[in-house]
């Protein structure tokens, strides 16, 4: 797969939100995304996991230009996406689509499902109404919503059903890159399995590159070829998904993997976890040095002062932002 050219290249992306906490107080900067680089190739899924609030959604939103990045570049299929304006931007937009985290907020309550799905088609493509209906019927049955339901409104569906509609809306333009922000987290397991298999199939068929944001590491394990673990706006570990699950390096990745619940009550009762203590730091005042040091069981003095870089581990393709790995006991 790696011989293919990346369809999406993100370099040193930063998203900083400015916010004034009150009169006479200095403006605060929330460093939601703080220097993220990644590449996606056609047909490849990269899982993105990490602490709640670590900037995953902000990264996704910046990549589709829903919010403006503070710094960095985004290249889509060889064009500088951030430089596009007007008609060129409009033509480029269908190739990168996003499924949003909150299926409640992302569907307009006044539009029927038919209208929700027709909207992107009307905005970007000129299709006959027959062709339009054909596409809508096709995608709606692909995501498992009864065809007879297209004239209903979002509030008439359950959370899970609404998420399927949101996926249908993102895929109806047949994008090259799909950013899926927690696409299955509100779904029950049987539907989750369907949607995951559906996304895998559609991805193969459409040769889609996918950034799959989730906090469910079991789901990510099933769907991703590669994996990136984020903490406070930065990637702390990245590589082949299989390798990371087999051999997690960064202390945060290890804690994450050990905290994933397993659907087996006896196993759960007997398991020991790496329980992290310490406050979850705020991205307004990220800790000095390695931002994970406040919760890291292995932190030493150097971790408090020197920000580590994301480096290859022993020359392997697995990248990790922790120079102390050699010192940390293996599980």
């Amino acid at each position: 797969m790696s011989e293919l050219q990346p369809v999406l290249t993100v370099k040193d992306l930063k998203v900083h939100f400015k916010k004034s906490p009150g009169y006479f107080k200095p403006v605060e900067r929330v460093k939601a995304v703080d220097g993220v680089s990644l590449e996606l190739r056609p047909g490849e899924t990269m899982g993105l996991v990490g602490e709640s609030g670590c900037g995953k959604s902000s990264l996704g939103r910046a990549i589709i230009r829903l919010i403006h990045p503070t710094e960095g570049t985004i290249d889509i299929g060889g064009t500088n996406f951030l430089a596009l304006k007007g008609g060129a931007l409009r033509r480029a937009r269908p190739s990168i689509q996003m499924v949003f985290q909150d299926p409640y907020a992302s569907l307009d309550p006044r539009m029927t499902i038919q209208e929700v799905l027709a909207e992107p088609l009307n905005a970007h493509l000129r299709l006959s109404s027959e062709e339009k209906n054909r596409r809508i019927q096709k995608i709606i049955s692909a995501v498992g919503i009864p065809k007879t339901a297209v004239h209903k409104y979002p509030h008439e569906f359950s959370g899970g059903q609404r998420q399927r509609i949101a996926i249908a809306r993102a895929l109806i333009l047949e994008p090259k890159v799909l950013i899926a922000d927690e696409p299955v987290s509100s779904l029950d397991v049987s539907v989750q399995a369907q949607i995951l298999n559906l996304m895998k199939d559609l991805q193969r068929e459409m040769n889609l590159a996918m950034l799959f944001i989730s906090h469910n590491l079991a789901v990510v394990r099933y769907i991703s070829h590669r994996l990136a673990v984020m903490y406070l706006g930065k990637i702390v570990e990245a590589g082949e998904s299989r390798e990371i699950y087999k051999n997690p390096l960064h202390p945060y990745t290890r804690a994450l993997i050990s905290a994933v619940p397993i659907p087996d009550p006896k196993l759960e009762r007997s398991r020991t976890r790496i329980v992290l203590t310490g406050e979850i730091p705020s991205p307004v005042n990220p800790p000095s040095g390695c931002t994970f040091h406040t919760r890291c069981p292995y932190a030493v003095e150097k971790c408090r002062t020197t920000p580590p870089e994301l480096l290859s581990f022993n020359g392997s393709p697995q990248l990790v932002r922790c120079p102390e790995i050699g010192r940390i006991p293996r599980q």
């Binding site: 029950d188 397991v189 049987s190 989750q192 399995a193 369907q194 995951l196 298999n197 469910n216 590491l217 079991a218 789901v219 394990r221 099933y222 299989r242 699950y245 993997i257 994933v260 397993i262 659907p263 196993l267």
Partner: peptide, 20 residues
């Protein structure tokens, strides 16, 4: 039964996930 089978598990690598 079907629910339990279609749950992805971290302790098992699955090539295919059965779904209902």
């Amino acid at each position: 039964h079907a629910l339990l089978k279609s749950t992805p598990r971290l302790d098992k690598a699955l090539a295919a996930l059965p779904s209902i």
